[in-house]
Nucleic acid binder design. Structure first.
Lengths: 200, 200, 200, 200
DNA sequence: TATGAATGAGCCTTCATTCAT
DNA sequence: CATGAATGAAGGCTCATTCAT
C-alpha cells in the first residue's frame, strides 16, 4: 500500500497544504481580504473540502498562526546550536535582515497578523498571535539572562520591539533598506552590552 | 442666526463628524471590519447621506488618515513651543506613554492603519499612510540634527521604530505596561546621546 | 425691468434648458442610464431645483419626447415649403441621411426612446413615443395621398419603417454608411413610384 | 440514476434555465429594468446562486444574447432545408410575421437589445448584439447572391432593415398588423426581384 | 472522505425624491 | 422660487458556511 493510498496520509497531506497555504496567503493578503477560496486554490484543494479539515475560517487562521509559531520554533532550535547566547541573538538579527524584501512587502508575518486580529471582537485569536510574540520575547529574555545582563526582560522587549518596529516601517515605507539600517544598529547595540559595566 | 443654523455650517459639521467618526471607528475596528453603517452610526448620520460627503469608502479612509495626520501636526506644533529639541523629543515620548491604554487596546492609529492598508491591492491609500509616518520620521530627524548628533536620520528611524514596535507589542500582548517600560528606556537613551561620541 | 428680472422669464428659461438637456442626454444615454443629476448638470440647473419644474423623472422624459415632437413639427413645416410632395419626401430622406453620424452613434431619437419606453410597465410614456412616430407616419401618408398613389398608408409605413430600420442597423453596427446606402435606395424607390403604373 | 439526479446534469440544467430566463426576461423588460432577482425568480434559482453560474449581470446579458443567436442559427438551419434561396427568404419573412404579437409587445429580441446596449458605456456587449444582426445580414446576402441578384448585400440590408423597422413600429404603435402589412409587401418585393433587371 | 453546488446574510453604492431654509 | 442637503429603498455582488451525493 503506497502512501498516497492511505487515506490518513492523504488527509494529513491536505491539511498540511492547507495550513501552509493559509500561512502564506494570509500573510500576503491579510485575514479580511483573503477568502477561503483563495486559500483552497493556493493549496490545490477543492473549496468544499476545506471544511472537512477546518470547521471555520478562524480555525484556518489559527492553523496559520501555529505554522508561524512552528517556524519560530525551528528558527530558535537552529539558533540554539550556537553555544554563545550573544551569537544566537546576532544570527537572529541577521535572519531578520535577510528577509528584508518580504518585510518591506508584507511586514512581519506574526506582527501584521497580530495587528489585524487585535481589531476583532472575537478575542481568542489575537491572544494566540500574542502568544507567538511572547514566545520570542521569552526566548530572547533567556539569552540575555544567560549573558548575565541586568533586566534581561527589558532588553528582550527592546529587541523584539525594535524588530516589530523596523518591520512595520519597512513595510509602510516599502523600503527594505530600513531593515538593513536598523539591523546594523541592533548588532552594534548587542555588542555594546556588557555585564559588568552597567550601573543599574 | 446662529452658526449651527447655517446650512453650510451644518454640512461642515456633518463632514467633520463623519471624519472624526471614521478616524475613531477605523482605528478601533480596522478598515475591513468597519462598515459604512458603523461610521454613519457613530457620526449619527443616515447611511445614505454619507455618500453626499464621501463618494466611496476609500475616501472616508483617506479622511481618517488625514485626521490622524492633522493630530500629528498639532502634536508637533505644540512640541515646537519647547526651545530644546531634546525636550521636544522627550515630551513626545511622554505623550506616547500617556496613551498607553489606547495603544494596548488598539495599537498606534497610523501604524495599524498602515499595516492594514499595505495588504490591499489598491496601492494609493497605503502610500498616504506611509506619508504620515514619514512626516514623523522627518521631524524627528530634524530634532536630532538640531542637536548636532551624528546620523540624525538613523536616530530618527530608531526612535520611530521603537515607538511602532512598542505600540505593536503593547497591543498584541494587551499590556500598557510595555509602553511605560520602553518609554522609560527611550528617555534614558535620549539623555545618553552626546554630540561628540554616540553610544547607542 | 429686464428680462432676467422677470421671474416668469427666468423660469421659462430654466424649463427650456431642462427640456433641451433632457432631450439630448436621454437620447445619448438612454432613459435608465441617465440620472436626474445628469440632466440638471447638462442644463446647468441645481438638482434640487429640477423638481420645481418637473415633478418626476417621467415628466422630464415626457418633456424630452415633446421636444423631439417639436423638432419633427419644425422639420415638417420646413418641408411643406416645398410645393411637390415627392420633393418633400426626398428632402426628408436627405435630412435623415445627413444625420447619419448621430444615427450610427445613438440611433433615431424617437425610435430608441420608443424601444426603451415600451419595456416599461408604466404604459403612458410609451404611448406618447408612439404618437410621435404616428405623427410622422400620418404626414408621410398625406404626401403619398397627395401624389395620388394607391395605398398611401402602406407606402408611409414602408418609408418610416425603412427609416427606423436603417437607423437601428446603423446604430447596432456603428456604421453611418448604412444610412447612405439605404437612403440612396429610398430615393430611387420614391422616384420609381408612378400613380398610373401601379396595378393594385 | 436518472439524469436529473446527476449533479452535473442539475448544474447544467440550472445554467440552461438561467440562460433561458435571462433571454426571456431581458427581452420583455429590457436590461436596465431587469434585476438579477427577476431573472433568478423566473429561473427558480436562489439569487445568491446565480453568481455561481454567471459572475456578473453582464455575463447573463451575454448569455441571453447568445441564446438569441442560437435561435437565429436554428432558424437559419431550418431554412436551409429548402432548396430555393428565394423560398428560404420568404419563409423567413413568414416566420417574422408569425411572431407579430410578440413583436408588437416587445419588439425584435435582438434589435431592442442592441438599441439598449448601444446606450451603454461598456462597449463590449453592444458589439456582440451587432454581431447577431450581422449574422442575419450576411446570411441574407448569401441568399440574394445565390439568386444571382445584383448588389446582394444592399438587398440584404434592405430586407433586414425592413424587419427591424417594422418590428420597431409594431412595438411602438402596439399594432401587430404592421407586421402583417409590411410582411406582405416584403413577400411581393421578393417575388418582383429578377436577376437581369432589378426594380425595387 | 470528497466535491460541486447551494444558500442567505450583508456590504457598498446609486438615485429618485423630499425637505429646510 | 432656489438650493444644498437628506433620506431610504433597492441593486449588484461577495463570501463563509452548508448540503447532497
Amino acid at each position: 500500500m503506497t502512501d498516497s493510498a492511505k487515506p490518513g496520509a492523504r488527509a494529513a497531506g491536505k491539511r498540511r497544504r492547507l495550513t501552509a497555504a493559509a500561512a502564506q496567503v494570509l500573510y500576503e493578503q491579510g485575514v479580511e481580504r483573503t477568502t477561503l477560496a483563495d486559500i483552497a486554490r493556493a493549496a490545490d484543494v477543492p473549496v468544499g473540502n476545506v471544511y472537512y479539515y477546518f470547521k471555520t475560517k478562524d480555525e484556518l487562521v489559527r492553523a496559520a498562526l501555529s505554522e508561524h509559531s512552528t517556524h519560530l520554533d525551528e528558527l530558535i532550535a537552529s539558533l540554539e546550536q550556537l553555544p554563545d547566547p550573544r551569537d544566537r541573538l546576532k544570527v537572529l538579527i541577521e535572519a531578520w535582515v535577510s528577509r528584508r524584501d518580504a518585510a518591506a512587502r508584507y511586514g512581519c508575518p506574526t506582527g501584521t497578523l497580530a495587528v489585524e486580529l487585535d481589531k476583532r471582537a472575537d478575542g481568542t485569536l489575537d491572544v494566540e498571535a500574542g502568544a507567538v510574540i511572547r514566545r520570542l520575547l521569552d526566548w530572547a529574555g533567556h539569552q540575555f539572562r544567560a549573558l548575565a545582563l541586568p533586566d534581561p526582560d527589558d532588553l528582550a522587549l527592546t529587541l523584539v520591539s525594535a524588530y516589530q518596529g523596523m518591520s512595520l516601517l519597512a513595510n509602510a515605507l516599502r523600503d527594505p533598506d530600513i531593515m538593513t539600517r536598523e539591523g546594523t544598529r541592533l548588532l552594534r547595540w548587542l555588542d555594546s552590552l556588557k555585564a559588568p559595566d552597567r550601573s543599574l
